[in-house]
Simulated assay, not measured.
Amino acid sequence: MHIGVLNGPNLNRLGRRRPERYGTRTLAEVVADLEEASARLGVRLSHYQSNHEGALLDWLHERQDDLDALIVNPAGLTPFGRPFCDALSETGLPVVIVHITQLYRHYGMDAQDLFRETATAYIAGLGWRGYIVALEHLHHEATK
């Protein structure tokens, strides 16, 4: 099994950007934790982070035929990243959307998330552990 892990804008600043909201773990630490969990499960991961929607689209378009599933944190693209959302949907792959925090806690009940309907599974508010839950879920679904 090969899973793509895509992280959107500002996630390169994890651990430094609003640690009271997003925690103190860096993206590199989250990636290391995911790699450790994926080795235990026998899953291969490919990681990519960009602050630019077009770069995320390019990465996805170039690799989607080699992937079995996706874990995506759209981050700053969440309310308006329609091209990225459409590209995810068009892959036909299982997509787990991960948000480190609860969007509605920070932005109110009218918070917009274009990606929620694209998601095979949706994880929010578990901090960095949401990525591990997403990985375990995809592995479980593929092996049941």
Score class of each variant (00 low, 15 high):
67 L>C: 02
49 Q>G: 09
45 L>G: 01
76 G>W: 11
18 R>T: 02
116 R>S: 11
83 P>K: 07
97 I>P: 05
19 P>R: 07
43 V>A: 05
118 T>C: 14
102 Q>R: 09
46 S>D: 15
69 A>P: 03
103 L>Q: 13
88 L>T: 03
34 L>M: 15
49 Q>A: 07
41 L>V: 10
59 W>N: 13
75 A>Y: 14
99 H>C: 03
117 E>L: 00
27 L>G: 04
77 L>E: 03
74 P>D: 06
14 L>F: 01
60 L>E: 06
16 R>P: 00
44 R>Y: 13
57 L>S: 05
59 W>F: 11
68 D>S: 00
31 V>A: 14
85 C>S: 11
11 L>T: 11
11 L>G: 10
81 G>A: 04
15 G>Y: 15
75 A>H: 14
29 E>P: 10
87 A>M: 04
102 Q>E: 03
64 Q>Y: 11
92 G>P: 08
38 S>G: 05
53 E>P: 10
32 A>K: 09
26 T>S: 15
117 E>Q: 05
35 E>L: 10
17 R>T: 12
51 N>F: 12
75 A>W: 14
17 R>K: 11
74 P>H: 01
65 D>M: 14
31 V>R: 13
119 A>C: 01
28 A>Q: 12
28 A>L: 09
39 A>G: 03
106 H>F: 02
47 H>W: 12
80 F>P: 00
115 F>C: 09
96 V>I: 15
106 H>A: 01
34 L>N: 13
62 E>W: 13
